[in-house]
């Protein structure tokens, strides 16, 4: 029985190997794409958020890192220093290693004048925002 089924299957495969590829009309793709473009203009884009979930996570982490950096890099005169002991929930926590790392980063951009240092940091910040904006604009234009 199994042998018979196998033989019949072989015969069918041989038979179907003679099946010719049937092509639709020459303008098939154009017609489908025309209908797709009509759908697109009528119903709009296939919805997908401009800023993806991953991008939001990166933005959140970056903002948190910037805030942390500002706290650690801040000088003696920075207002938060006055409140820091009050918000320190764990007084035994040793944050010295963070200070040493951030100190090194700070020294990379430190100049003789604190004004120049602030300008450098401001420029870096502006550059970061410009890059982010250009990336987002690029995605927006691709979608249109």
């Amino acid at each position: 029985m199994k042998r018979q089924a196998k033989k019949e299957d072989e015969l069918m495969r041989d038979l179907f190997s003679r099946q010719e590829v049937v092509e639709p009309s020459a303008s098939f793709t154009e017609r489908v794409m025309y209908r797709v473009s009509v759908e697109k203009s009528y119903y709009g884009e296939i919805y997908k958020p401009l800023i993806s979930r991953t991008a939001w996570i990166i933005i959140a982490v970056s903002v948190a890192a910037l805030v942390a950096l500002a706290i650690v890099l801040g000088g003696e005169g920075t207002s938060y220093v006055r409140f820091l002991p009050d918000v320190n929930f764990n007084p035994d926590l040793n944050l010295a290693w963070i200070s040493s790392v951030t100190e090194k980063i700070y020294r990379l951009f430190q100049t003789t004048s604190p004004v120049i240092t602030y300008v450098i940091f401001s420029l870096l910040g502006v550059c970061l925002f410009l890059i982010t904006e250009s990336l987002l604009s690029q995605r927006l234009f691709q979608k249109r």
Binding site: V22, E23, P24, T29, V32, M33, V36, I46, K143
Partner: peptide, 26 residues
């Protein structure tokens, strides 16, 4: 690409599958 807004990329998929889709429908 299509999901990113490049609708024209869909033509590649249409060209690739049109014969089989048409054959099955036929």
């Amino acid at each position: 690409k299509v999901l990113d807004g490049e609708t024209n990329a869909y033509a590649f998929l249409v060209n690739k599958y049109k014969s089989m889709v048409f054959s099955l429908a036929l």
